[in-house]
Design a protein around this nucleic acid. Structure first.
Length: 592
RNA sequence: GGGGCUGUAGUAGAGUCGGUUACAACGCCGGCCUGUCACGCCGGAGGUCGCGGGUUCGAGUCCCGUCAGCCCCGCCA
């Protein structure tokens, strides 16, 4: 079929510099324009599109073949690169100054009419795109995303290798561990009744590599979590996973800032200032209500608990009495919000558990608000001063538990940032969030659970709290947040077996269970574990931001739907009885 | 487990208060056209209104259920 033809150029790379050259191109037919005499074909490959001109006077045979060509046919052509005639240059195309005058054309394969148009003009239903993903992936925008993703991976490998990191693979068939997300399980045929788990991350293995003395490790690695999906969450996703020995937090952060800066430089040509800003967890919650603040705009939260604790407004005073707080936002010049819009905002905070949203419009005559009557002059003045309330402003309040008030108002801040256009779409605002709590009380299981993971080291000065008040201990943990999205997180690990055992017992993991689940880690800590720490970045989320994608599916070649199925391969699927029998598995539910 | 949005030719949409044969565009097929580039002109084919049930003389339209896709809460150390 190809005979002795060899491609000489990618379509998208034929330029004015090639004028006069004989070229051989291969690709897909993007579009054919038949003028009766002249036929133009836009030929496409991954690098772009170039126009072919077929003149019946030059070569009737190839012109005749071009007549039969349809969209998405695969063809090979030979011809001369020529300047386009005066007035026919297309400035919208990278290759628009030239065209290829075809002397020979071969149809390498035909194609059925695609189920949807492969252009950038039609918004095709995503389920159809996913069913025919191999066609969807021909579209330029998705190809661009995946090429950028490749460039990120290449930059990361190059940067980390240059800093002495070794790329080492860890097992995919491994062991289920307590804590964390639901595991994907794989039955063992050789050991009936037992299961491997796919890794939620290579956490334990990378720590063991440090104990083994590899000093610096990284891996671009698939991780698996059997939890419900979101616009930025897939059951299998990719981490840039790193670990370093003989380091403290500052070492990890500075190496990783360099890596992120290199990625932005190489992929977008954007210079990221380093060192990046930092904020402690408690300050993030206080000012923004969430631990992943979007630093592209202000609209910070205020705590007015002390100003209203003795007021006449029962909703506020009850929240305070129950140990909660009252937090507020001042939406500058937001006084024009309609009743409907305020109702919508109230519905919005209810999603996050808030019971309601109090509002105040600042007018020339003071507060216009359903709750104005509950406050005396002194209280009004104090609140106004605290929030810097001016005529035309809109004040919003949530009174609830510490957690709910912060979460609801913090999310409302993000929502308003979008709605009011406060966000610069071209900005990249990084912030390290540090000093996370080590443990969190889980009322349901009545025990402490690790905020980061069970191997995270407590801050040295907080170790005494492990005995007296475990909830007060802070962790040597850090997250990197970009534009309100957590793109990475890590910690300095526990390298001392006694501290690790104490952590397990605080989390209600008994000695026997700990030995059973993590025995190999505890053993390793006993055999000369160096101080070590690391971090993992979510590659998918990072690429989402770099490409401006709203969906993680736009940066993954073959993603799954919200119900975790693949519409193309139709995974997951039923299997033969024979396969089940070999695995000693009996199915108790059949698909609908 | 819960809340919300969407579903009409191959595609993306319109479809009034429930009323004749469900529209026009893009794509597709045929014809014409030698400088277009999301080419143009003429003609043609193409429909299980997601699926099931109900109300009604009559349902794309109203009601109930269900399926699928998407967004969110819970969940995701």
């Amino acid at each position: 079929m190809l005979g002795d033809w060899k491609r000489s150029h990618y379509c998208g790379q034929v330029t004015a510099e090639d004028i006069g050259k004989e070229v051989c191109l291969m690709g897909w037919v993007q579009r054919r324009r038949d003028h009766g005499g002249l036929i133009f074909i836009d030929l496409r490959d991954r690098e772009g599109i170039v126009q072919l001109a077929l003149d019946p006077d030059r070569d009737p045979e190839s012109h005749g073949k071009a007549d039969r060509v349809r969209n998405e046919f695969v063809i090979a052509v030979k011809g001369m690169v020529s300047p386009r005639p005066e007035g026919t240059v297309n400035p919208k195309m990278k290759t628009g100054e030239v065209e290829v005058e075809i002397s020979e054309l071969r149809i390498l394969n035909t194609a059925k009419t695609p189920p949807f148009m492969l252009d950038e003009y039609t918004d095709v239903a995503e389920n159809l795109r996913l069913k025919y993903r191999f066609l969807d992936l021909r579209r330029e925008s998705i190809q661009r995303n995946l090429i950028l993703r490749h460039n990120v991976a290449q930059t990361v490998r190059h940067y980390l290798a240059g800093k002495g990191f070794l790329e080492i693979e860890t097992p995919v068939l491994t062991k289920s561990t307590p804590e964390g997300a639901r595991d994907y399980l794989v039955p063992s045929r050789v050991n009936p009744g037992t299961f491997y788990a796919l890794p939620q991350s290579p956490q334990l293995f990378k720590q063991l590599l440090m104990v083994s003395g590899f000093d610096r490790y990284f891996q671009i690695v698939k991780c698996f979590r059997d939890e419900d999906l979101r616009a930025d969450r897939q059951p299998e996703f990719t981490q840039i996973d790193c670990e370093m020995s003989f380091v403290d937090r500052e070492d990890v952060i500075s190496v990783m800032e360099g890596m992120i800066a290199a990625v932005f430089r190489e992929t977008l040509g954007v210079e990221i200032p380093i060192p990046m800003p930092r904020i402690t967890y408690s300050e993030a919650i206080d000012r923004f209500g969430v631990d992943n603040p979007d630093m592209r705009f202000g609209l910070e939260l205020s705590d007015i608990t002390d100003l209203v604790r003795d007021s006449g407004f029962k909703v506020f005073t009850d929240a305070v009495k129950n140990g909660g707080l009252v937090k507020a936002l001042n939406v500058k010049q937001g006084g024009g919000f309609s009743r409907k819009e305020l109702d919508d905002l109230t519905e919005f905070v209810k999603i996050y558990g808030a019971k309601g949203l109090a509002w105040v419009k600042m007018t020339e005559n003071g507060w216009q608000s359903p709750i104005a009557k509950f406050f005396n002059e002194e209280e009004l003045a104090a609140i106004n001063r605290n929030l810097d309330a001016k005529t035309g402003d809109l004040l919003l309040f949530v009174a609830d538990s510490f957690r709910t008030a912060n979460e609801a108002l913090g999310r409302l801040r993000g929502h308003l940032g979008q709605k009011l256009g406060l966000i610069d779409r071209d900005a990249y605002r990084f912030v390290w969030v540090t000093d996370f709590p080590l443990l969190e009380w889980d009322g349901e299981t009545r025990r402490h659970v690790a905020v980061h993971h069970p191997f995270t080291a407590p801050m040295d000065e907080d170790i005494p709290f492990l005995d007296s008040d475990p909830g007060r201990a802070r962790a040597k943990a850090y997250d990197l947040v970009l534009n309100g999205s957590e793109i990475g997180g890590g910690s300095i690990r526990i390298h001392d077996q006694t501290v690790q055992s104490r952590m397990f017992s605080l989390m209600g993991i008994g000695e026997e269970e700990a030995r059973n689940k993590f025995g190999f880690l505890l053993d390793a800590l006993d055999f000369g574990a160096p101080p070590h720490g690391g971090i993992a970045f979510g590659l998918d989320r990072l690429v989402m931001i770099l490409t401006g994608s709203d969906s993680i599916r736009d940066v993954i070649a073959f993603p799954k739907t919200q119900k975790a199925t693949c519409l193309m391969s139709e995974a997951p699927g039923v299997v033969d009885e024979k396969q089940l029998k070999e695995l000693s598995i009996r199915v108790i539910a059949r698909p609908k």
